[in-house]
């Protein structure tokens, strides 16, 4: 089997690491070779963060390069635009939260947040699947559950994993206290 590439992008503090850990656990239940490349340190303080998840028969590189991602799971719109170049032309799918988080150069007024990024991404000819994950997360009980909403959406593209298998991976990845809320967030993303 050809190596599959999932790239997760967002803003430091949004919970992207949990999403990649959860995917890793899910994939480990099948006999795949897996590499999950994380970001620790400085950029976790509100900077752009990128995590790579790769699986297949034999995975060498821990990272995903431009033009290689089968899926991009983006937690924020500007980060989706930044990552778009990493998508595989024609076959890749960009799943993105429509939430906009202003980076400091926008906050200070040095530059503007780009207009109509979704439209521009679609004009590029990319397959874009956009959803308001923040509202769904809040509906589930916490704005911090954006990661589970997005994973729920992603799960639609991975139908060979049953909902039960996803649930097991969720149980292994989130604290007991927040389990129900996170399951709900996943579900809302999955049916959205």
């Amino acid at each position: 089997m050809e190596t599959k590439n999932i790239m997760i992008v967002g803003v430091g503090g949004q919970g992207t690491l949990l999403a990649s850990k959860l995917l890793g656990r899910l994939l480990l239940t099948r006999n795949y070779d897996i590499k999950v490349s994380e970001v620790h340190g400085m950029s976790q303080r509100g900077g752009s963060v990128v995590t790579y998840v790769r699986y297949g028969e034999k995975v060498y590189s821990p990272i995903i390069d431009k033009g290689e991602a089968d899926f991009i799971l983006s937690f924020e719109l500007l980060e989706a635009a930044r990552a778009a170049e990493w998508l595989r032309p024609d076959v890749g799918t960009l799943i993105t939260n429509t939430q906009q988080i202003n980076p400091m150069p926008v906050i200070t007024g040095a530059v503007n947040y780009p207009e109509d990024l979704l439209g521009k991404l679609k004009t590029l000819g990319l397959k874009v699947d956009a959803l308001d994950a923040l509202s769904l997360a809040q509906e589930a009980g916490s704005s911090r559950a954006v990661n589970l909403v997005l994973l729920g959406r992603l799960s639609n593209y991975f139908r060979d994993f049953t909902e039960e298998e996803w649930m097991t991976a969720i149980e292994q990845s989130v604290p007991e206290k927040f389990l129900e809320m996170n399951k709900k967030a996943f579900h809302l993303g999955r049916i959205a």
Binding site: G12, E85, L87, G92, P103, P105, V111, K120
Partner: peptide, 19 residues
């Protein structure tokens, strides 16, 4: 090597910030 499609505009950087 691989290549992807890129938006034709420069995007604002997102440097790390104090929380």
């Amino acid at each position: 090597k691989h290549a992807g499609k890129k938006l034709d505009e420069s995007l604002p950087a997102r440097p790390p910030v104090m929380c």
